[in-house]
Design a binder for these strands. Structure first.
Lengths: 126, 126
DNA sequence: TTACCACCTAGAGTGTACTCCAAGTCAATA
DNA sequence: TATTGACTTGGAGTACACTCTAGGTGGTAA
């Protein structure tokens, strides 16, 4: 797969794909004889994984660390698992915090509903 | 309340508090005779509200808009409610997306658990 | 009355995460 | 064989959200 195809498929700009590879957020992609990136299925998986994790708010730093552990081989499995558990914990607490904010927002909206209803009752024609 | 107290109370730097006021993310705070900010209870509420909403990922742009509608008075209630509902929707879908990523992460962690268990069984001493 | 400290403002600087650019390569087409 | 277009690289530029700085004011304590 070319970079153009991957870019379209995952809606990530070519520049960002190259940038992610440059900083190690995804492993280095194989080039063909003329130096052009040829994304394998696994490369695509990495692109997708990084996209998900990044948009969920995982730090670039942690993801780079994870990629490099994977590349070091099976000896790092324990460490990788630990890293993922740590990130999972962070993500979970972010979600909980956001859920609490959502609830506040719901409360606020409900209060607007009430107040607007009152205004309506006072001026039934307006 | 002085800016130092508010800064401590909500764990937001004084610079950021001044910045938020400057860009209209919170309404202008009253100054005393010598020009020093004196945060009222309501100001503190705004600081807290902005902090919550910002850390949940609401855009600065939307929050500035909300603040300015509140300052325009009761005539904007309908519009404010609409804005909050819109932001609520965005927040909800972000939470759902993050929840999906959390689930993926759980699956990944579970697979590491399995693989590590297998390795252990193969080398029960190691 | 001078030293100090917390505060003020406007504007410049910074870090992160991209995003763009210049100069060049390669394969395919006119 | 000349042009086109998608790609390459390294490095420069940008946007956002702060964060810091310089120069100044006002109130308090030695």
């Amino acid at each position: 797969m070319t970079i153009a195809e991957v870019s379209r498929k995952y809606d990530i700009s070519q520049d960002t794909l190259r940038y992610y590879e440059r900083i190690g957020l995804i492993p280095r992609v194989r080039r063909n004889k003329s130096g052009i990136r040829d994304y394998s299925e696994e490369d695509c998986y990495w692109v997708y994984f990084s996209k998900c994790m990044r948009s969920a708010g995982l730090s670039i730093e942690a993801l780079i660390e994870y990629v490099s552990l994977v590349q070091e081989g099976d000896g790092t499995m324990q460490e990788r698992k630990k890293l993922l558990i740590e990130q999972r914990k962070l993500l979970k607490s972010r979600i909980e915090e956001m859920q609490a904010t959502l609830d506040r927002l719901d409360g606020k909206i409900a209060r607007y509903e009430e107040r607007l209803l009152k205004v309506e009752q006072q001026c039934p024609v307006g």
